[in-house]
């Protein structure tokens, strides 16, 4: 119930009947019904969701900021099918990335800047993962790929700083074609525009 608010709500509404699919003793059923009626259960669920969201927000902070009004239903949908298998929620960022990619490509998430910001953060995240992986499994004879390019359709030097300041970017940024190179230098992400077509 901590991870499944739908089940918790069902137990709250229907009592032990909602637990009929589980192999539980009468005492266990009674206790779970009692627990779900306590306000602390909401705290428990909120803490679990916050912990689960943390690695997603860590990997895709600007995407989450941009999609703030749609984030909760998106996470509810994702988490209704995806179960965490790790105490530190290591699989949550990849699952969110895959899920949002589907939503964007199917046109179910529509925002003028969402695709490019998400592409940008996916690239940054991939570089960081490569760095972490190479640190954990050093291969001296292998050149580390420390650069990736991302295409923006709006000026990244306006869009990204606004989101970094947690501000809503201007809704009418002129469209263009910007090729941006992300490079990891001494653990710092360096961003430079390498090509602009107005």
């Amino acid at each position: 119930m901590t991870l499944n608010p739908v089940l918790a709500a069902s137990v709250l509404r229907r009592g032990a009947d909602a637990l009929a699919g589980y192999t539980l003793t009468a005492m266990e059923q009674e206790r779970l019904v009692a627990v779900v009626h306590q306000r602390g259960m909401s705290v428990n669920c909120t803490l679990a969701r916050a912990n689960r969201f943390a690695p997603i927000a860590d990997a895709f902070p600007l995407t989450c900021s941009l999609l703030k009004p749609w984030l909760r239903p998106l996470l509810d949908e994702l988490w209704s099918v995806h179960r965490p298998d790790n105490y530190q929620f290591a699989g949550e960022a990849p699952a969110f990335s895959w899920f949002l990619q589907q939503k964007l490509s199917q046109g179910e998430v529509k925002h003028p800047y969402a695709e490019e910001i998400f592409r940008y953060e996916c690239a940054a995240w991939a570089l960081i993962q490569t760095l972490l992986s190479s640190a954990a499994h050093p291969a001296p004879d292998r050149e580390l790929d420390k650069s990736l390019t991302v295409r923006f359709t709006h000026d990244p030097h306006v869009l990204v700083p606004a989101l970094e300041r947690d501000e809503t970017p201007p809704p009418d940024l002129p469209a263009g074609d910007y090729l941006v190179r992300l490079t990891l230098r001494d653990d710092v992400l360096d961003v430079e525009t390498v090509e602009v077509r107005g």
Binding site: T2, N44, A48, R83, D85, F89
Partner: peptide
């Protein structure tokens, strides 16, 4: 924190027992 016969789900939070 882990539930399921293969511990396939992890709540990521230290849940209490009676």
């Amino acid at each position: 924190s882990r539930i399921g016969a293969g511990h396939e789900t992890n709540a990521g939070i230290a849940l209490p027992v009676p």
